[in-house]
Design a protein around this nucleic acid. Structure first.
Lengths: 352, 352
DNA sequence: CTGAAAGCGCTTACAG
DNA sequence: CTGAAAGCGCTTACAG
């Protein structure tokens, strides 16, 4: 294991000078710099990041914190569940951004209480935190905000002195989806959404309502049907819906997400109905799978790479802005959404 | 930030004793231990893992290395691609196992050359490596093996002094899938598999052939059709197949994976054929989505949690077996596979 | 059983 | 521009 000591010896300088050269200090002569660089190459030296972290009291590591449930102790624990499928794609972009900035990504799993959770992060000297916390009442959110470690939340609207958030324009996306159906002649449009108080669901509900209002359509509580974010719950809810409502009182469904839409499609098929012949379905997210559903799914695209890029760049900016400007204004980043029309939506057919 | 110095002062002992108590050394008196524990609780002390890593020359971090392509510089870069969907589920189990053992998971992205790749891992003092390398010729595999850091590969059959692997019984799984179709009366059974030299594909091809042989059926090269692991390529291959083969010369398809099967189903639908009425399809992996395809997919289940558990436990055992026994025999772990019958397979119908 | 001391590999005021 | 020295927070022989 090559150390800076060996580099210094070979270059005929002190470790201090090697360190300065490495960290781009201007106070190093050209000759010294050259000799050091040669020594580094010939020895294959690379600085020990652990030692650097210790002395700098800060690592180049960004921790990923996912709180999908209240009890998930590991970062990925809930990632197999269909409702979180969307975030995976975004994580790819997140990792690329982080790598490009020469930071590492840590999945820090702590099965302990909240204060220990934060402490674990501090003891690892993480530089910053990227958090996706779907339940706004999760106590860890507030703990994170108070910990004063630079933090960017995705899809949670928490803000603080050292934290901000990025989110899609969920309201406008849902509005577009509903408007698309209205333009196709639909008047009785269901929406399946969780009954929780999360910001994502709330905004999507609001967008749905806004589109109806703009079109002068009434907002019927019977058209807003509760279902969890996952495929199975959406499937069950739709089955229940199709059985309860005889005769059927709707011609289209705005799904809370694409993965919910997949369950909805399946239920409609099983009841012997056609899509979009009998019922039109719109998803939300535009995950890759949308192209392979039967029929291919009309949906709302979230700009995942813009979300990831915005989140990471904002985070790194916060990390590297060592000057703690009191007046710093951290404005949230809201990325646009866009309707993608495929084959699961069509003209409304009159109800029986 | 509470340090061991403060704990020592409060407990009236030296830092050395605090360290011993913390690390479970027997050479600490009961009274000292008690006072130290009280001090730790009252101060909320937690050791600095960075300092520990430096002095121990080893962190409690396990790096995740995914080499899905030859050029992926980030760990997750290829995870959005359908062909790697399966590994995500396994990663969940992997993370849980790692967390339970009180290790951290690092996604180490290095966009640099191979020797720097290894060096980056060494400089971070990672304790061990979990690697999924789908291309057996990837130079990083050999570099990893030679680096002598404890490593467990998943689905690559690399072994070395400090490395071993875990894999499903791919051959037997594919054999079961094919046998299932034979029992349903199918005689002309296609298989769609990548033409690469990866161990997973090779084993699955061998299992397919073995089932045919055991049934006394000929192995027709025209029945082994090349297609990449992803949904899109499987879709395109099937479309081409259905156009080329007029009249059609097969009644069933063994897909290389579930995500390939999804593309195959879509192509069959688009050609106006029925599943399993016209063509039966079997997948491989048993991802959650199988239940939601149209029709629900018959497939081969891989025991992901057994794979994850085997991999992590083996890895940690290697890490903590500080005694480098020369005669240590690291035997690979092969987990069983199992047929899951759903609705995409049915009796063979005679070909025109 | 316990403490003083050295050391892990680096960085950074402090002098010069 | 450069080096000697101190220090980041811990662990571990070495004495006692």
């Amino acid at each position: 294991m090559v150390t800076s000591e060996q580099v210094a010896r070979l270059a005929g300088v002190s470790r201090a000078t090697v360190s300065r050269a490495l960290n781009g200090s201007p106070r190093v002569s050209a000759e010294a710099r050259k000799r050091i660089e040669e020594a580094i190459v010939s020895l294959g030296y690379e600085p020990d990041v652990v030692a650097q972290s210790l002395v700098r009291q800060r690592s180049r590591t960004i921790a990923l914190c996912l709180f999908f449930g209240n009890d998930d102790s590991t970062v990925l624990s809930r990632f197999g569940e269909t409702q979180h499928y969307f975030y995976l794609d975004m994580l790819r972009d997140v990792e690329r951004e982080i790598a490009d900035a020469h930071y590492d990504l840590l999945l820090h799993s702590s099965s302990i209480a909240q204060n220990n959770y934060i402490r674990g992060l501090q003891m690892r000297h993480v530089a910053g935190i990227l958090a996706i916390a779907l339940n706004p009442t999760d106590a860890r959110i507030q703990a994170l905000v108070e910990a004063q470690i630079p933090t960017v939340f995705i899809d949670s609207i928490s803000q603080g002195q050292n934290s901000t958030y990025v989110s899609s324009d969920n309201l406008d996306g849902s509005r577009q989806a509903t408007e698309h159906l209205i333009q196709l002649g639909h008047r009785r449009i269901m929406t399946l959404l969780p009954g929780t108080n999360g910001p994502v669901g709330s905004k999507r509900r609001a967008g749905y309502c806004q589109a109806l209002e703009q079109a002068g359509l009434p907002i019927d509580e019977r058209l807003i049907y509760p279902a969890g974010w996952n495929t199975e719950e959406a499937y069950r809810a739709t089955m229940a819906l199709l059985r309860e409502r005889q005769p059927r009182d709707f011609t289209a469904i705005v799904a809370g997400s694409d993965l919910m839409a997949i369950g909805i499609l399946r239920a409609i098929h099983e009841c012997g109905l056609h899509i979009p012949g009998d019922i039109s379905v719109v998803g939300f997210d535009d995950v890759d799978l949308c192209r392979y559903t039967e029929p291919p799914l009309t949906t709302i695209r979230q700009d995942r790479s813009a979300m990831a890029q915005g989140a990471v760049q904002q985070l790194i900016q916060m990390i590297e802005a060592d000057d703690q400007l009191e007046e710093r204004q951290l404005s949230p980043i809201i990325t646009p959404t866009q309707l993608v029309v495929r084959a699961s939506t069509g003209p409304a057919v009159p109800l029986a």
